[in-house]
Simulated scan of single mutants.
Amino acid sequence: MTQNGITRRQHYVPDFYLQGWATDDGKVTAHDLQSLKDKKTFRTDPANVLVQSYFYEEDTANPDNRIENILSAMEGRTASVVKKVRAVTAATDVKAAAATLSRSLTGAGVDVLAEFAAYQYMRVPGAIEQKRYELQTSALDETTKTHHLNPGRFVEGGYAYVVDHFKAMKYLFFISSGQDFVTSDWPCFDMDEDNRGTLLGEEVGRKTDVVAYMPLTPRVGMVMYPVGINQASLNSRRWGASVQPDSFVRNQNTLIIQKAERYVVARKESPFIFAVAVKRRKSQPQSL
């Protein structure tokens, strides 16, 4: 909703992206991981989920829409590329879809997806809270921490800090042969081989044992590899595509569910989402 040039309801996961998970009625299914006992889900328009009032405003009493305008411009560029990915991978023949996607993407298109991933890596509440946790032992005083962790300042500065590393990475697009990829309120994140945990923005694109992941559509998962990693499907190329079985998709979906703050988004209700969520570390009672 925009009034006098100011967008009140500001998405931290854009609705153009979530529309990829919409069914014929234009709605997605959101799974609320805070309701593991009741397994609460709801059908909603993508415009009405993963959104907060004046989320990116540096001064909510005097909003200026500055960051929202930057993000809107980026989303406009990205939407056309994602639309192309959806169209190319709609083919029934998944091997042909993978080959066509690999062939039809351009360096400029991959750059746009890299920028989108870099923004999405930084712009969600979960990332901001992770950085707040990481700064607990820093020498910064609370006023300075609060200033830098304002979502608008955080996404702008964080994007500038990581975007070149995202652009330098190699991109492998995994095409599902059947089962849908799901997404969440924290759709782009990094991880390491040893599962020791990574520092937000400090290792992605820098360390060879750290990769980043983001589901791009229900049929396409995007994995970002640092230069130097041994990935036979890419060889010397910057991007490529391959077909993966349901077992791989389930593994990627498990990662998404484990990382999500509260909401996992899918095309339809999925008991698998809650079965994974109940076992994740975030769902366990915290000891005193």
Rank of each mutant, 00 (worst) to 15 (best):
D93I: 11
G152Y: 13
F166Q: 05
E203T: 08
T92Y: 00
A168P: 03
D45H: 13
F272H: 14
R77E: 14
Y213F: 15
Y225D: 02
V94W: 08
L140S: 07
A91S: 07
Y56C: 04
N48D: 12
S176V: 06
A30S: 12
Y225C: 05
R153D: 03
F173I: 05
Q286D: 13
D38G: 14
S138R: 10
A99G: 11
L288P: 11
E134V: 09
R267Y: 00
E269C: 02
D24F: 13
Y263C: 02
K37L: 14
F189M: 13
D45K: 13
S236P: 00
R262Y: 04
P125Y: 03
P151H: 12
S72N: 08
R66K: 14
L36V: 04
D64F: 12
D164L: 08
F274R: 05
A47C: 03
G5N: 12
S35W: 07
E75H: 01
V264C: 01
V110E: 02
N48P: 00
T144Y: 03
A117P: 07
T23L: 11
V81G: 08
Q244R: 10
N65R: 05
G76M: 08
G5T: 12
R237K: 14
S270A: 12
F173D: 07
A91F: 00
Q130Y: 00
K95H: 15
H31P: 03
G158I: 07
G201V: 06
I229G: 04
A232M: 09
A266E: 03
L50S: 00
S233G: 09
C188E: 04
P285H: 10
Q286V: 14
L234K: 03
I67V: 15
A30K: 11
V220L: 10
N4E: 14
G26Q: 12
A241P: 01
W239E: 02
A22L: 05
Q10G: 01
T100F: 09
A212W: 04
R281P: 15
K40T: 13
R123S: 00
P215E: 04
V94L: 11
A73I: 08
L50H: 00
F272A: 15
P215Q: 04
Y121K: 06
K145D: 08
P14A: 01
V13H: 01
A47S: 08
V276H: 09
T183Q: 04
V211M: 09
D32G: 06
Q19R: 15
D209L: 01
P218E: 06
C188I: 09
I67A: 07
K84I: 07
K167T: 02
V163G: 04
T217C: 00
P46V: 12
K279P: 11
R86G: 00
T100W: 05
S53H: 13
G205I: 11
P215I: 06
L255E: 13
P125K: 03
S80P: 01
V88S: 07
L234V: 05
K83H: 09
